[in-house]
């Protein structure tokens, strides 16, 4: 059941957002409502699976010295594709995600998985790893989006279901503002720490987020810059 393990680890145990603390920008920026969060999660999952697939196939061809630019080009190609699809079929979602759809390119989760996993593993495990991490990312985004939308706007999934869920209290608007994003994420991680009764295990060595562009590995800096 090795394949199952590769798939399931990204969802809770090594959740990219809540445990490894990667991909902070989209997590904070587009979770003002649960529908957007879901759309962003699915788009990222698609790119993650696609890039893991291609990079795993090319892992013996890409030279180590130029691996970062190669990975970025593969990822950017998938992002361009999903941007076209979304513009064509989900125009509203495309508009509300805005620049952040293009910025999936520099999402450190995707680069991290390419560097830490897909470049070292066979096709099937890489795809499953991408899928699991993508679902974990979507789950964290959806959780954030739901909390912020329910408290901040008094609705749930309003962009998909209209007024189906409406809550009879005065919404606290600050929750859908930037300040609320930082606050909710901080509390979710704190609650998770409390539930696990300890600090979540740090990813082995470096989580491979490449936020430091490999500088840690080359010994140019001593502390991890992503705070993971």
């Amino acid at each position: 059941m090795n394949y199952w393990k590769e798939f399931i680890k990204g969802i809770i145990k090594e959740n990219p957002v809540l445990v490894s603390i990667l991909g902070m920008c989209p997590t904070l920026a587009i979770t003002t409502d649960a529908g957007n969060a879901l759309g962003m999660g699915i788009a990222t999952t698609f790119v993650l699976v696609g890039s893991n697939l291609v990079i795993s196939l090319l892992r013996k061809i890409i030279p180590k010295a130029v691996s970062l630019p190669c990975y970025i080009v593969v990822i950017a190609a998938f992002v361009t594709f999903i941007e076209f699809m979304m513009k064509g079929y989900f125009t509203d979602l495309y508009k509300s995600l805005g620049t952040f759809l293009s910025l999936i390119t520099v999402n450190c989760i995707i680069l991290g998985r390419a560097e830490m996993f897909a470049s070292k593993n066979k096709l099937l495990p890489s795809v499953l790893d991408g899928l699991g991490m993508g679902i974990g990312f979507t789950f964290a985004l959806f959780l954030m989006g739901s909390i912020r939308e329910i408290i901040g706007s008094g609705t749930w999934l309003a962009s998909l279901l209209g007024d189906t869920f409406k809550f009879p209290f005065e919404p606290i608007t600050v929750f859908i503002m930037p300040a609320g994003g930082f606050f909710v994420l901080g509390l979710i991680i704190a609650v998770l720490n409390l539930m696990l009764k300890k600090k979540p295990p740090k990813a082995v060595g470096c989580g491979g987020c490449t936020a430091c562009g490999g500088a840690l590995e080359r010994g140019q800096i001593t502390d991890c810059v992503s705070g993971g």
Partner: peptide
Amino acid sequence: PAALKGLPITLVAASIMALSFM
């Protein structure tokens, strides 16, 4: 508080700072 140590308290502080920039 132990559960807030590290990243959570940093995010809460960032939240207060974002509030002031608003």
